[in-house]
Design a protein around this nucleic acid. Sequence first.
DNA 1: ATGAAAGCGCTAACAA
DNA 2: TTGTTAGCGCTTTCAT
Lengths: 342, 342
Amino acid sequence: MRPPTLRDVALQAGVHPATASRALNPETRGLVNEDTANRVIKVAKALGYRPNPIARSLKTARSATIGLLVPDLTNPLFPPIVRGVEQVLSPVGYSAWIVNTDNDLDRERSQVMSLRSRQVEGFIIATARLHHPLLEQLHAEGVPMVLVNRRLADGGVPSVTPDDAAGATMAVAHLTSLGHTRIAHLAGPQDTSTGVVRLRAYREALAAHGIEEDPALIATCASWTEQEGAVGLRQLLDSGADFTAVLGGNDMLALGCYDVLEERGLSCPQDLSVVGFNDVPFVDKLRPPLTSIHVPHQEMGAEAAHLLLDMLQNPGRHPRSVLLPPTIAVRQSTAPPRAHTP
Amino acid sequence: MRPPTLRDVALQAGVHPATASRALNPETRGLVNEDTANRVIKVAKALGYRPNPIARSLKTARSATIGLLVPDLTNPLFPPIVRGVEQVLSPVGYSAWIVNTDNDLDRERSQVMSLRSRQVEGFIIATARLHHPLLEQLHAEGVPMVLVNRRLADGGVPSVTPDDAAGATMAVAHLTSLGHTRIAHLAGPQDTSTGVVRLRAYREALAAHGIEEDPALIATCASWTEQEGAVGLRQLLDSGADFTAVLGGNDMLALGCYDVLEERGLSCPQDLSVVGFNDVPFVDKLRPPLTSIHVPHQEMGAEAAHLLLDMLQNPGRHPRSVLLPPTIAVRQSTAPPRAHTP
DNA sequence: ATGAAAGCGCTAACAA
DNA sequence: TTGTTAGCGCTTTCAT
């Protein structure tokens, strides 16, 4: 049996489909006599009527749906962000269409086009790079969008990100307070705001602590993965550079450090202190528990969703960006340096 | 400027919209003169024509979309399954609409209705409980669906799951081979197939090894969470029961054991060997690395997607279920029991 | 306050 | 092989 349509409801209630539409839509219910409205509603319920959002979208060019672009759901940073987004959208009747780009720009482009043709009303984007033609174009076209976690070089695009500079500064301060002076950094990809800002803040924090910068202590990683973190640390160790602590650009890079320490028979924190960034789930249970810069993941997602909804409701209003303050979670991966370096 | 429609393309190419439709759709291209088809295609490309899937769905009652129900994306078991699903769907032009149910049956019901009204062509479902009226009803209505990870009591619904019995058996065999005879089990929720099957297999494996079953060594957890795992192990320890190893119903429950050992000042594996189930990402990096039953997460998703696509293409065919063989990943959380128990 | 009519963009009979 | 026609289910002018 075909599911009932608006026409069925209207027929049954003895009104015109247009009237039934008005009665059933809270936005337009005021236009209709209260009694008829109630009658229609009752019939709709009796028939088990479910409005067809596809037909509605075709007519209205809206969809109560937003697109959520994530680089990689298997990175534990992102599921909590997704959850934050859903938590805000769902009470107002919106849904998120989640897509994984796998850090592939072509894939991302085709997914964005597909989402647009499905009439998503806006985007929440966790895949931003500093220069990102696709996203810049979307923004130029006036497509409502909010960046999360990472920003574009163009600060005019609204975003919700951790205060990366403050976080890196805290990390360095923590290490210096333990007595470290030779602090290395595994910088993330320099085509991302997080990679660039954290690196810059690391440098400035060293300077602020009167520590001279040593380029040999910086390795730049090509992606935010455990593998790349391992590559970076191996490179630093093999260069013969002398350091007692390392700041990972994020937790995945720090995880890669753990792998290298293991393979080299070094121990953390005795031989090397390690600090991560993001404090994603489970790093508190690693061996050893990872000291990391904590950022409120779920709140990032929730705040991004709020911003986007706000933009959808007030198309004129000037877009804001939000910087969320991090905190440091000190755990056993950091300790004072040994008298003799490794 | 309004995006071009099929009408625009047809006009520009000097054909009727219907012809343009046929030319642009690979399925119907054969019905049209090759030259005209090419002309239409060229015009479409020139105009940057994008078909409107909403209009198409409204007409065809299909959507090239399936619904993917996940209980909780922040459980690292699920992102790889999602990835496996996408990896299979995407090459054939299908997309998955991912929804988080948060283990809330009401939420799940409303999300399923919403997905159905969006014309999803089928479901891949990771939220099954043994008795699950919503899913049973879907199946009864003939909605194409494939369960993943967990099954319904009704074995007639196609599913892709690990061979839970084999896994639990391997875990017990591993522990007994180390010399353990007092082996506890934190059983998962008994309204899920995974919870029930693993518990049963644990029992049978003990018997097969000539170990008498002791009900005091089994705690049943109300949910598959770290918190519940902790509750369960505390209960076992407080009961004064005597055991040297524990098999967690899944990795989250095993993680909860880690928390309790830490809070009681006990050490793993010296005081207690712990085995998990699923071998989710990161458990190999815990303190200590967790011995766990490895199941191929991504493959589960991929296989489920294959099954579903198959059902969509051959509606008549008899549905199959797939059991994937697990392996055991032996790590440092298991060791021979000490002479003196804790 | 309600109805009539039109159309969102596309596809599937049917006709030619 | 192509065009005609109709309609998927809904909303929104416009008219009454």
